[in-house]
């Protein structure tokens, strides 16, 4: 099964974030890391609260974070349907280790679970979440 990462971002005017606030090198580093993960065969999806709020409502865990923290708990990172972090853009190493643990023991030796064997977790092959 392909590992899937969903990132729920705070509201942003444009994805590049150049309109408005300081250039946040974290944000660009994170985007590059996600691209890299995608190249390794991980399915990556990002949602911007200012553009797709319904995706946030559709996920109970994410909705709870938004409500409890007044939005400060974003971004929320969800791996294979499980919320793994909030309020922080993880480093590449942290992302890799999340993907590895989601991929199960068999794939932990390879850096990336390209050929995913793991079938547990909420997501079936169709990717229900």
């Amino acid at each position: 099964m392909m590992t899937r990462i969903d990132v729920f971002d705070p509201p942003m005017c444009c994805s590049t974030g150049v309109c408005g606030t300081d250039v946040d090198p974290q944000l660009s580093r994170f985007a590059a890391d996600l691209d890299w993960l995608a190249q390794q065969g991980v399915s990556v999806r990002r949602y911007n609260l200012a553009q797709e709020p319904q995706a946030f409502m559709a996920n109970e865990q994410v909705q709870a974070v938004v409500n409890e923290t007044d939005g400060a708990g974003l971004p929320v990172i969800v791996v294979n349907g499980r919320m793994m972090s909030q309020g922080v853009y993880l480093t590449r190493e942290q992302l890799v280790s999340l993907v590895q643990s989601a991929g199960g023991a068999e794939s932990s030796t390879s850096v990336m679970p390209n050929a995913a064997k793991q079938t547990s977790g909420c997501c079936g092959p169709e990717g229900c979440c």
């Binding site: 609260l49 200012a50 709020p53």
Partner: peptide
């Protein structure tokens, strides 16, 4: 269904 502050942030963006 969203906190007021979050809605205001979205509107601004």
């Amino acid at each position: 269904s969203m906190p007021g502050k979050v809605v205001r942030d979205m509107e601004e963006q």
